[in-house]
């Protein structure tokens, strides 16, 4: 059963990669890389919706924050604007503080102690 599910996942990922990199030829290469990262964030959203406990959802949101920094970096070289990396730094800071606050909330302590 587990091998069967692994095989289905392999087919889905391979189909996505073929459609992204081989079928459409008129898209710039930077945007194809951004498409791969957006596909990754789809998996993260699956974990956010499905996750059996609160901690799974917190982990998924923390990882989404780090992934978006990567998207900002690729956008910066795609559009040749350096302020996208500033957006990435600010996003990383806020994601870090948010993860710490959510962890404290999960542990049952109050936020100001």
């Amino acid at each position: 059963m587990r091998v069967f599910r692994w095989f289905i996942g392999l087919i889905i990922i391979a189909a996505f990669l073929v459609i992204n990199f081989v079928v459409f030829t008129n898209i710039p290469f930077n945007y194809k890389l951004i498409n791969v990262l957006l596909f990754c964030s789809l998996f993260i959203l699956i974990r956010v919706v499905k996750g059996p406990s609160v901690a799974d959802r917190i982990v998924a949101i923390d990882i989404l924050g780090i992934l978006i920094i990567g998207i900002c970096a690729i956008l910066a070289i795609a559009l040749d604007r350096s302020y996208f990396i500033d957006i990435g730094i600010a996003w990383g800071l806020q994601s870090f503080i948010g993860a710490l606050a959510l962890a404290k909330f999960l542990e049952g302590r109050s936020l100001d102690a």
């Binding site: 609160v54 901690a55 920094i69 990383g92 870090f96 959510l102 962890a103 999960l106 542990e107």
Partner: peptide, 19 residues
Amino acid sequence: ILLTSPVSAHAIAKAAHSA
């Protein structure tokens, strides 16, 4: 990123274990 992401990881791990 390399400095902060491990810190948030073990904050979440400790909170999950004590929850």
